[in-house]
Amino acid sequence: MEKLEALHQNNKMNARLRKNSIWKSIFFLSTLFGLVVLAILIIRVLIQGLEWIDLEFITSRLSTQADKAGIMGAILGTLWVMVVVIPVTLIIGVGSAIYLELYSKKGKIQSFIETNIANLAGVPSIVYGLLGLTAFVRLMDLGNVVLAGGLTLALLVLPILIVSAQEALRAVPGHLSEASYGMGATKWQTIRKIILPAALPSILTGSILALSRAIGETAPLTVLGIPALLIPFPQGLLDTFTALPMQIYYWTLDSSLVAEYANLAAATIVILLLILFILNSIAIIIRNKYHQRN
């Protein structure tokens, strides 16, 4: 007993434990730091932007006069871009994922394509802008229209979608496809009727997350030369357009000239965040529904 007490004194256990709990608080505060900044950011934007949001703001055209300006054009532009991004990324992304997970033999070609996808995911978004500028705006001579912007953003988020679709396919239990093969189903039949339906909820979740990344992206659009002029509302894939993030960008830049522009930018941010929030909620609902069933 005495020996233990001596040991306790010697190894300064109390001091060490105190140190432990102090550091624990520091770790906890660090974790809170990011969240506090997040809260400040959101509250700040809401305070600045909310009072500017009304039906008129959402449904009107752009204007140089702050109190008349609306963002209908930017909302429509963002929606049109989604019309391009969704099918393009889904078809290419899911197709590539099926090829990599279920068809390609484990070997050089597969690891080459997978390494390439991993590298693409790390390429700065602005570089995709230059690719889009060269390939879609100039080479295909589309100009800075919805289709060019949508394709550029689709290429940008493709790696995200492929990787998440691969994970979704991998998570389908092997015994399901075994049962299908066991009945004489071919590979494509098994993929179409068993594997894809089982993986669909996770694929949808992944594609919604990729989509939210695409519609919040600004840098590639600045390179494509997307204007913030008083252009007509886009009505098709080959119309010029502006998008919500571009509108935020221009208004923020010009806020040093006209102070109200900062508020307009904040109001537009609220709308953009609201759209992202809705998209992510849908993704979470799909994910939860799917998990309940299993």
Binding site: E178, M183, K193, I194
Partner: peptide, 29 residues
């Protein structure tokens, strides 16, 4: 193999119905 497996059925260690209705499970083949 597809022809072979059409003539030779298999029942597995762990019950592995598809996540579909009973009707769809039986009509799958």
């Amino acid at each position: 193999v597809e022809d072979l497996r059409t003539q030779v059925g298999m029942v597995f260690q762990k019950p592995n119905p598809f996540p579909k209705s009973i009707y769809e499970n039986v009509t799958y083949g």
